[in-house]
Nucleic acid binder design. Structure first.
Lengths: 339, 339
DNA sequence: CTGTTAGCGCGTTCAG
DNA sequence: CTGAACGCGCTAACAG
């Protein structure tokens, strides 16, 4: 029933004008110390809470930040959501979480809704089909930071994993252990990450003097089904690969199932390396070796960059690109090739 | 640069008053068909987008719903976030995602912030220490629906898993396969779910005429570490259990590691049943049998209930409690006890 | 240092 | 059916 107490009520109770109350509670030292303290006290007693909407209408700032991801199943997005949420909150912002299912239409709708809500900024993993929309948002004063994927149609501040280097490092690790036929299960080639992970793999191979064999590569969506299909296809070959590199943690699940189907043991019968780390990999048996793509660091940096541009006197739009280094974590699913 | 176009601009362009424009765009048939169509067109041409803040200030409704969970790592919360977000959006609401880390202080702060944002409703997995806050919110017209956990200090609409029945069904499944010593790794007894899962386990045992042995129970936080510790403790016994029941998917990870440490094979050397399903369990080797606690259904129902109460003429506050049935999913980590 | 005045953009009376 | 006027709650000019 709690009739919301407004600034006017506080002012009246303190016998001052509304604006004095406003200034006192803002605490910028624009009022005498005594009235400031007094109003703080009265406001607290009355249980006054400022109305965010009214304030936002006036100041044109909602302290709301849109966070747009494809889903929450993927470990990188999950980490992104948790970290960004935490960092924003520490700076007095709230995250508006939206999920697009990697669907351009839903993404477009989401972006417009967020704009309507007058969010102060936007952190988004773009589908790549709404670049214009994002760019106009950014240009009109709502900073946009892209993360994980880049929207290639337009120039926006972007935080990415060092995918070429990560895939290169992983592949190289396998090569150094003597593997020569390395199956790669990778993302769709329409996506930045898909292409870059493939290119890193390829470069490592070529540097090692091994011809790139496209039939060792299976590209598809980042889903278990892709891993399963790829695994089956690769295992059906006469010259079965001695190692598999799954370029995403979800497809790795499918690979595990594919291996289990045929009773192929890890790491004795085949080696498995996975791009992206998830807690399950460390805890399972055998523990899966991974190239950690640095989701945490990406999230931190994305939040940092956006917050930076949200500060009072920030450069309007710095379309820089940032890369987060990948890191090899050796566990038990990879071993030197048998002779 | 996009100077935001306001209702006034639309009205001016159409040579009508602001209020006519407002009515025409609302489309409630309060204007002539012709002006309605004309204004719709002009608004579209000008790229008019209503200002959510101004509208909310006036209508006292933001179409924002707070969604408060402990984290996004736990599968139930993840599903909750995804499902609730989707259902809300379908009804024109946006979700404000907040993470409390199961910390009462952060929870209190979060609830207040959400109230400040004038959210229309709240779906929360409560810590149980801020019942008064939640109740006053609910009483003052912002419906609150609790989910997964109940705040026992207060009467609020709550959607829970049928934990007693689920744990009972799981335990019974193991009993029917001949297991007599069943180790239980369960949540803290301060939480509803922890207590209820233990009680279900206990009831199944007693119905089967087996004395409850507290030393077979290891309670702790829902974390891999708990599972690992519990697993070690249970395996150290002289009369080692023939089956383990991990009452949460995260502690199950720890159990898997604990088994691996000692080279105890699933399901040959011991059986493992897990409460809560995650995709990884179905895909891994051997696939883990689970009692699915119905996170999806819980999320759907919680969203349903809240949306119901958000409708124009809804009952102010129905403090009902809803239970979602659990379901046993047999996979490959459980087998009959060896003789 | 404080009070008065004027909007922010919209929905909604109250007259015509 | 339409227009004029008011106010949601707050901050920011401009005076005093």
């Amino acid at each position: 029933m709690q009739t919301t107490v407004t600034l006017r009520d506080v002012a009246r109770a303190a016998k001052v004008s509304v604006s004095t109350a406003s200034r006192a509670l803002a605490g910028g030292g624009l009022t005498s110390k005594s009235t400031e303290a007094r109003l703080q006290r009265i406001a607290a007693e009355l249980g006054y809470r400022p109305n965010t909407l009214a304030r936002g209408l006036k100041t044109r700032s909602t302290r709301l930040v849109g966070l747009v991801v494809h889903n929450l199943t993927n470990a990188s997005f999950r980490v992104l959501a948790e970290v960004v949420q935490r960092r924003l909150r520490a700076e007095g912002y709230q995250a508006l979480l939206c999920i697009t299912a990697d669907d351009p239409e839903q993404e477009a709708e989401t972006i417009e809704t967020l704009a309507d809500q007058r969010v102060d900024g936007l952190i988004i993993c773009p589908t790549g089909h709404n670049g214009a929309l994002l760019a106009s948002l950014d240009a009109s004063g709502t900073p946009v930071t892209c993360v994980v994927r880049r929207d290639e149609t337009v120039e926006l501040e972007t935080v990415l994993a060092a995918d070429p280097e990560g895939a290169y490092a992983g592949t190289r690790h396998l090569l150094e252990l003597g593997h020569r036929r390395i199956g790669l299960i990778v993302g769709r080639q329409e996506t930045t990450s898909g292409r870059e992970r493939l290119s890193g793999y390829r470069r490592a191979l070529e540097e090692a003097g091994i011809a790139f064999d496209p039939t060792l590569v299976h590209a598809g969506r980042y889903e278990p089904e892709t891993g399963l299909a790829g695994c089956r296809q690769l295992l059906d070959r006469d010259d079965r690969p001695t190692a598999l590199f799954a370029a995403n943690h979800e497809s790795a699940l499918g690979v595990l199932r594919g291996l289990a189907e045929r009773n192929i043991a890890l790491p004795d019968d085949i080696s498995l390396l996975c791009y992206e780390d998830v807690p399950g990999f460390a805890w399972q048996r055998p523990a899966i070796s991974v190239v950690d793509s640095g989701a945490n660091a990406m999230a931190e940096l994305a939040a940092d960059r956006l917050l930076q541009r949200l500060r009072p006197n920030a450069a309007p739009s710095a379309a820089g690109e940032y890369r987060i280094g990948a890191r090899l974590i050796q566990r038990q699913s990879v071993r030197p090739v048998a002779h």
